[in-house]
Nucleic acid binder design. Structure first.
Lengths: 128, 128
DNA sequence: CTTGACTCTGTACCTATGTACGGCATTTAT
DNA sequence: ATAAATGCCGTACATAGGTACAGAGTCAAG
């Protein structure tokens, strides 16, 4: 029950090029190529690509996903460590954005108390 | 009180090339070049680059930072409008990160209920 | 005055994640 | 049997944000 690259791509709603791209990146392995070098994929490859896409949505890079995939049979603690790193990164980014949000809100409130449209207090605040 | 490009770069702990790169991108203007085309920077350039770096840490692209910087001589109402755009962008970015955080936390909580270190439930969750 | 440290411009290269295309082989539909 | 579709490989391009030279000019110390 194997399928050509375009069938696979269509099923996953991605381009044929992306399948080959993932192969070049080592995320999926080159399958059996019975007739004249044509790739024929088993259903597991589709699963693997779905895994890749889910992980991508969670903010993992393709490199990290490669590591995740190779950890598939590793102790839970290793996988956990990777996810924890990612979580820490996300949380630190959020902290920075929260700071910025506060700063922008503060700036905007200064504008609201400003009668003089020719000069903006935001600019003064942005200057170090 | 002007300084050469390498003095500036060293003070800011960045490479000389980056200073020129920012110049090419229009983020800083080419300064006075009194002797044979050598750049000599006033202290404001250092301030400007510090501003760029702070903004970068908060997830602004260089293009966006360019726009922020160009607000300097605009009427308050324009500055305000752009700041509001940024605020909306920041909030939307935070929303995305929050979703990610929740997803990662959900994965990790599965690990914590897992006695079997030889097999990770994260991998199962990502599997279709 | 020579040597070594800077500086200039311009271009090429790098990573990440693809996208697109040229040129040729093969398979499938008519 | 032939034309269209699909496949292959290799390479170039795109974006963002740099990084690294090459080759030539200039400045500063001994």
């Amino acid at each position: 029950m194997s399928q050509t690259i375009s069938k696979l791509a269509k099923k996953l709603n991605i381009s044929v090029e992306i399948v080959r791209f993932y192969e070049r990146k080592g995320l999926i392995s080159q399958p059996e190529k019975p007739t004249h070098g044509y790739r024929h994929y088993p259903e597991e490859t589709a699963d693997r690509i779905r895994f890749i896409h889910r992980s991508k949505e969670l903010g993992f890079t393709l490199d990290e996903i490669g590591r995740l995939l190779s950890l598939a049979d590793s102790p839970c603690s290793q996988v956990q460590a990777l996810a924890e790193d990612k979580l820490a990164m996300v949380q630190s980014k959020m902290k920075g954005l929260k700071r910025l949000e506060k700063a922008l809100e503060a700036l905007l409130s200064q504008c609201n108390n400003n009668d003089d449209d020719t000069h903006c207090p935001i600019i003064d605040s942005l200057q170090p």
